[in-house]
Amino acid sequence: MSRLAWTLYNALQLLFTLLWTAGWICLALLVRLLSGGCHWPLRMASRCWAPGLLHGAGARLEVHGLEQVDWARPHVFVANHQSMIDICALFRALPVPLRFVLKQELAKVPFVGWYARAMGMVFIERSSARSSARRLRAAADLLRAGASVCAFPEGTRSRDGRVGAFKGGAFQLAIEAGVSVVPVAIEGSGRVLPAAGFRVRPGRIVVRIGEPLPTRGMTPHERNALAQQARAAVAALLGEGRAQ
């Protein structure tokens, strides 16, 4: 009976997730059309869509370290990645409109892809270095215009909770735009919604924001060293949580 109950619960969760997401995206696209800008549609994601999905999943969100960041400036936020619900957690935790760096495949997903393209999200085609470089340059222009960008530099979701190697693209972007990199550690999301399948379990998600890493004076050739520094900072933030 317990297994049957969880199966029914997850089926209802999936239905709720699809309907909630489609509904808010349609409304956000309408607001985008009427307002001519991305500010309010992006705030709808952080204030309506994301908290609705977190609440529906029974996820309790805790945020630490907001005081570390000057939120009036643009930044590149880099986070570890355990679950699709990480995007909800970051939309809700970080008090600025966010553009995410996403895999090109997501551009083809109905509703999600439509919203992401309309909001100016950055799509990376990993099989094409030339295309990725062009899109990273466009993302650098976003940062110079005052927008903040969020990336998962591991490139994929971790299935065991360990932080993988960080790829250099997001760090080159920060260096070229001259903005700081902010390490962000997400803990607990993989237990709420594991990387494989769709099995929601209520639980706590903790977002810890680290001290910004300056990029002033750095060259693109130093991006891998910056990536290693950011990965170490994220791993340290996760270690702080486990020590509590």
Results as ranks from 00 to 15, higher is better:
residue 100 F to L: 05
residue 55 H to D: 08
residue 211 E to T: 04
residue 2 S to L: 10
residue 144 R to W: 08
residue 240 E to H: 02
residue 2 S to P: 09
residue 41 P to G: 05
residue 153 P to R: 00
residue 30 L to S: 08
residue 155 G to V: 03
residue 120 G to R: 08
residue 239 G to V: 00
residue 88 C to Y: 06
residue 1 M to G: 12
residue 223 R to Y: 11
residue 111 F to R: 10
residue 58 G to Q: 10
residue 243 A to G: 01
residue 101 V to N: 03
residue 166 F to D: 01
residue 224 N to K: 14
residue 108 K to P: 02
residue 236 A to V: 03
residue 124 I to Y: 00
residue 6 W to K: 02
residue 133 A to W: 07
residue 95 P to K: 05
residue 174 A to T: 10
residue 39 H to Y: 14
residue 71 W to F: 12
residue 70 D to N: 14
residue 171 F to V: 11
residue 202 P to C: 13
residue 117 R to T: 09
residue 105 E to L: 02
residue 134 R to T: 14
residue 76 V to N: 05
residue 68 Q to E: 11
residue 182 V to W: 03
residue 225 A to E: 07
residue 12 L to C: 11
residue 39 H to V: 12
residue 215 T to Q: 02
residue 118 A to T: 06
residue 81 H to P: 02
residue 22 A to F: 15
residue 192 V to G: 09
residue 146 G to N: 12
residue 83 S to M: 00
residue 24 W to Y: 08
residue 6 W to C: 06
residue 233 A to N: 00
residue 47 R to C: 01
residue 61 L to S: 01
residue 62 E to F: 05
residue 243 A to T: 02
residue 235 A to I: 05
residue 40 W to G: 02
residue 203 G to C: 00
residue 62 E to L: 02
residue 161 G to F: 01
residue 212 P to S: 09
residue 112 V to G: 00
residue 25 I to M: 09
residue 91 F to T: 02
residue 160 D to V: 05
residue 45 A to Y: 12
residue 129 A to T: 14
residue 5 A to F: 09
residue 80 N to T: 00
residue 22 A to W: 13
residue 136 L to I: 15
residue 216 R to N: 03
residue 5 A to R: 15
residue 97 P to I: 15
residue 68 Q to H: 15
residue 165 A to K: 11
residue 37 G to C: 14
residue 240 E to L: 01
residue 25 I to H: 11
residue 149 V to I: 05
residue 158 S to H: 08
residue 144 R to A: 07
residue 145 A to F: 13
residue 210 G to V: 01
residue 207 V to E: 08
residue 175 I to S: 01
residue 10 N to D: 14
residue 193 L to I: 10
residue 12 L to S: 06
residue 150 C to G: 03
residue 179 V to M: 08
residue 92 R to F: 07
residue 210 G to I: 02
residue 212 P to I: 02
residue 183 P to T: 04
residue 108 K to R: 11
residue 234 V to R: 00
residue 62 E to D: 11
residue 192 V to D: 08
residue 20 W to M: 15
residue 167 K to L: 13
residue 7 T to P: 07
residue 5 A to K: 13
residue 204 R to G: 04
residue 126 R to Q: 15
residue 9 Y to L: 14
residue 33 L to V: 09
residue 69 V to Q: 04
residue 165 A to V: 12
residue 214 P to F: 00
residue 108 K to T: 08
residue 208 R to E: 01
residue 149 V to A: 03
residue 105 E to Y: 06
residue 112 V to K: 01
residue 105 E to Q: 07
residue 27 L to M: 11
residue 99 R to C: 07
residue 102 L to W: 10
residue 186 I to D: 05
residue 8 L to C: 04
residue 163 V to N: 09
residue 109 V to L: 07
residue 198 F to D: 06
residue 62 E to C: 04
residue 162 R to D: 12
residue 240 E to W: 05
residue 25 I to V: 15
residue 66 L to T: 14
residue 114 W to M: 03
residue 191 R to P: 05
residue 72 A to V: 04
residue 160 D to T: 04
residue 58 G to T: 07
residue 151 A to H: 03
residue 128 S to I: 10
residue 125 E to S: 12
residue 150 C to D: 01
residue 37 G to K: 06
residue 165 A to D: 14
residue 101 V to D: 04
residue 107 A to V: 07
residue 181 V to Y: 02
residue 174 A to G: 11
residue 44 M to I: 12
residue 3 R to Y: 12
residue 163 V to L: 08
residue 94 L to C: 06
residue 78 V to E: 06
residue 34 L to I: 07
residue 223 R to K: 14
residue 137 R to D: 13
